[in-house]
Structure formats: structure tokens, C-alpha cells
Write a protein that binds this DNA or RNA. Sequence first.
DNA 1: CCCTGATTCGC
DNA 2: GCGAATCAGG
Length: 201
Amino acid sequence: MSWTDERVETLKKMWAEGQSASQIAKELGGVTRNAVIGKVHRLGLSNRVGGGKDEAEEEAPVVAAKPEPVSRPVPEQRPEPVAAAPRPAPERPAAAPAAPSNVTPLPIRKAIIPAGQPLPPQPSANEISPEVLASVREVEKHAKRLTLMELTERTCKWPIGDPATDDFWFCGLPSLPGKPYCEAHVGVAFQPMSARRDRRR
DNA sequence: CCCTGATTCGC
DNA sequence: GCGAATCAGG
């Protein structure tokens, strides 16, 4: 692969957006993150913050206040065509995590049905043992609260909170090799048929 | 160990 | 110019 104008453009764009070299490399394909970094330097568009080294994860403010300057209500034009939206978890386990939000320590949540659909399936979380639920809730206290963009192949992609509000993030704990979720969440996502059969209490 | 960018240097 | 190897750090 060579650095065609198009590829360079993608590189510039993504780098400007703050994407990491590895993410850019993945997007472009055919190159490693080293190649991307090398190109970035050759293009002279190195530092993007002004700091020197390291520039990794960033604690996402729980509530991102509106960046309204001081006296400029002018809604600046944001020409962001932004490429394809990052895809969520690729697979759908037997018991899809429809709304694990009911286990988060949040104030009373308004019953919002974002899709406006009846949500027929609803794999009733009642079929999950109290022990597992308890451990999951415990684990979620330690969740890394990652945003969609911060997820990788090795981070738990279990959604927590209400997608319709700002109280939404992903578990982010180390996922099991080959699995989309961490140990605790795999436990509730993948349940053997046998264990699912009339487990009442 | 996972990840990040920075630098070097043979090609 | 390119990018793997290496380095330095979180």
C-alpha cells in the first residue's frame, strides 16, 4: 500500500479528529500504526495538543457542559460528514442486554423507550440468579465507563445506563478472549439453555 | 499486558 | 519517503 492522496486525506482527517494511530491504521488497512505515526511526522502534523509525549485515554466528564463561550450564541457550522459510525457489538448472544440499566445506581429513571417500539422479546432478567445479578452490579461499580469510541476488541462492550441520556457508557473491563464481554457480563449474556429453563424463585 | 505516540535508521 | 524496531510512558 502506498500513501495516495486519498489515504493521506483520511489520515489527516482522522488524526485531526483525535483518532489514535492504531485506529487510523485499522481504518486505512494495509498499514501499521507505526506507518501512520511515521507519516504523521513526515507530514509535520505531529503534536495535536501542545504537550509532548503520551496522550492516551481521557476521563470523560460525567456531564459535558455546553461549550458555550461567553457571548457568542452563534451556532458554528460543523461540517462533519464523519464516516461510517463505529459498529457496536457484532454478535447477538442468546440473552441480549436489552436494558441492563435497571442495575445502575441512578436516580429514578423516566421510562423512556427510545425506539418507540413495543420491545417484544425482552429476555426478562428475572431468569438470572440473584447471585449473578449482585456480582454484576458490583462489577459495574468498577466499570471503566468507556465511550463507544474507546471500545476495543479487548474491552467489555456491555452497555450500562440509558442510551437516551448522558448516563450511558460501556463496561470497558477486560473482555474474555474471543468474547465481547467481561467475565461478569458474559455470565448474564451467555446462558446455557439448560440453565434458562424454568429457573424461578 | 493492554495501550499511546516518538524516534531511529536501514532500505 | 517509508515503516519495523525500538523506546518511553500511562
